[in-house]
Design a protein around this nucleic acid. Structure first.
Lengths: 224, 224
DNA sequence: TTTAATAAATAGTAATACTATCATTAAAAA
DNA sequence: TTTTTAATGATAGTATTACTATTTATTAAA
C-alpha cells in the first residue's frame, strides 16, 4: 500500500493551488529548501524562480507574495502536526498518556511517519522554529485571522487544550497552557541551538530534556 | 529632584550614539512611534527621515540598518525592565513575593515609574510584543549573540531565573521557566488582542488574568 | 480548423536599502 | 581670532526587491 498524505489548505492562501501542478509542488518543495538555507528575509521569488528554472512571474501566479507563501507552509506544518497527533494518539484511552505523547510529538520533529512526497518535514520544522512566528506578527493579523488563515494552528492548540481538559476538567487555562507548550516546544529548541543561556539544556541538543521540562510544566500546572 | 534614566547600550548597536544628540534622540523617539504605527515591515529610514525632517543618509549615520535599530530599542526595553525589576523588588526579603512582583511587572506594562525623556514605554511595550522576537529570529543570531547584542534580554532572564532558584534551589529548569514566563507575558497579551482563541482571556484585555495564569504556571512548577 | 483559454517569457515600474559626494554650520582647539 | 574638526544637510546614484502589464507561445475545446 502506498499512502500519500494530502492536506487541504485554505484557498485564500494561494492564487492557484500549488498541489495541483508539477510547478506548484516544486514551488513548495524548493521554497522550503531555500528559506531554510538563506532565511526568510533574504528569500525572494526571483531566487526561488532561478532554483526551479521558472520565472518570477510564474511564482506570482501561485502566490500573491512571500508572506502568503510563508503562511502556507507554516500552516501546512500545523495541519500535519495535528494529523500526526490524531494518528498517534488514536486508540489511547488514557488522557495523560495522550498528553505526554502530544508533548513529545511537537517537541521532537523527526520520526518520519508518512511519506509526504515533496515536503521535507525536517527542514520545515526548523523553518517553523525560526520563522513561524513571523506569519502572524504583522500589522494585518486581524484580517488574516478573519480569513481563517491560522485555522490549523488554532485547531492544534484547541486539540491539545481538549486533552488538557480531559486530564483535569477544572483547569482554568487550557488554551493558554496549550499554546505555551506548543510555542515553547519550538522556541526552547531554537534557544538551545542559538541562545543557550536562555535555557537549561546547554548545547546538548538533547531534546528529551526539553520534553521533560515541558512535561513537568504541564503536569505540575494541571496537577495530576 | 529630577531624575533621568540613561541606559548604556552596547556600542556595536549603533554607528553614532543616538543618546548624545538631539537628532539621535529624535530618531529613537520617532522610530518607536512610527514602528508602532505602521509596523516593522513598512517602516523605512526614508519615512522616518521625513517624520523628523532629516534625510535618509542622516539616519544611516546613526544606525547601520533598521534591524540594528530594532535590536537597539528592543534591548533598551529589556534593560529598562531589568532596572524596574531591581528597583521594585529592592528591600523585599521574601523570594516568592519578589517573583510575584517580577511576573506582574513584565506582564503589565504601564505604571510609569520613571521619566525616561523621549521614550514612550507604552508604545515600546507593544512593539516588543509584536516585533521583539524578530530581533533574534534571523540567520545572523549567532554573530549578533557573539557581539553581545542580546545581553539585556539574557540578563533579565538570568535575574528572574535567580529568583526562581531562591524560591526552590532544587528546581531543574530555572532559565527555561524564566524565559517561558517572559515570552508568555508578551505573547499571551498579543494573542488576547489578536488571536483570542489561543488563550483563555477572551478579548477582555484583563491583564490580571494573564498574571494569574503565569503565577499559577510558575508556582505550580516550582512547587512552593 | 478556428477559437478560446492557459501558461510562459519579457519587459517595465515604484520603492527599498543602501553608498558616495559635497556644501554648510557650529563647536572646539590653536 | 582663526583654524580645524565634527556633525548635519542636500543631492544623486545603484542594485535589488516586489510587484504589474504586455506579449507570445501552447494546449484544449468547439
Amino acid at each position: 500500500m502506498e499512502l500519500s498524505l494530502k492536506i487541504k489548505m485554505n484557498e485564500k492562501l494561494f492564487l492557484r493551488n500549488p498541489e495541483e501542478s508539477e510547478l506548484g509542488r516544486k514551488i513548495i518543495q524548493h521554497s522550503i529548501i531555500l528559506i531554510h538555507k538563506i532565511g526568510l528575509e533574504a528569500f525572494t521569488f526571483k531566487k526561488l524562480a532561478k532554483e526551479i528554472s521558472t520565472t518570477e512571474a510564474g511564482i506570482y501566479r501561485y502566490f500573491e507574495n512571500k508572506h502568503r507563501l510563508l503562511i502556507y507552509i507554516v500552516e501546512w506544518y500545523w495541519s500535519w502536526q495535528e494529523y500526526r497527533l490524531i494518528f498517534q494518539t488514536n486508540n489511547i484511552k488514557n488522557a495523560e498518556t495522550r498528553l505526554k505523547k502530544a508533548i513529545r510529538l511537537i517537541s521532537t520533529p523527526i520520526e518520519d511517519d508518512v511519506t509526504t512526497s515533496h515536503i521535507n518535514e525536517n527542514l520545515l520544522y526548523e523553518i517553523v522554529m525560526s520563522e513561524g512566528a513571523k506569519s502572524f506578527l504583522t500589522k494585518h493579523v486581524t484580517e488574516d485571522n478573519k480569513a481563517k488563515l491560522f485555522k490549523p494552528y488554532k485547531d492544534l492548540c484547541a486539540r491539545i487544550a481538549g486533552i488538557i481538559l480531559e486530564c483535569n476538567p477544572k483547569y482554568k487555562y487550557p488554551n493558554s497552557l496549550s499554546i505555551t507548550v506548543i510555542e515553547m516546544a519550538h522556541s526552547q529548541n531554537y534557544y538551545a541551538k542559538h541562545l543557550p543561556s536562555l535555557t537549561d539544556f546547554g548545547n546538548s541538543k538533547d531534546e528529551s530534556k526539553i520534553v521533560s521540562y515541558l512535561e513537568d510544566l504541564v503536569f505540575s500546572s494541571i496537577k495530576v
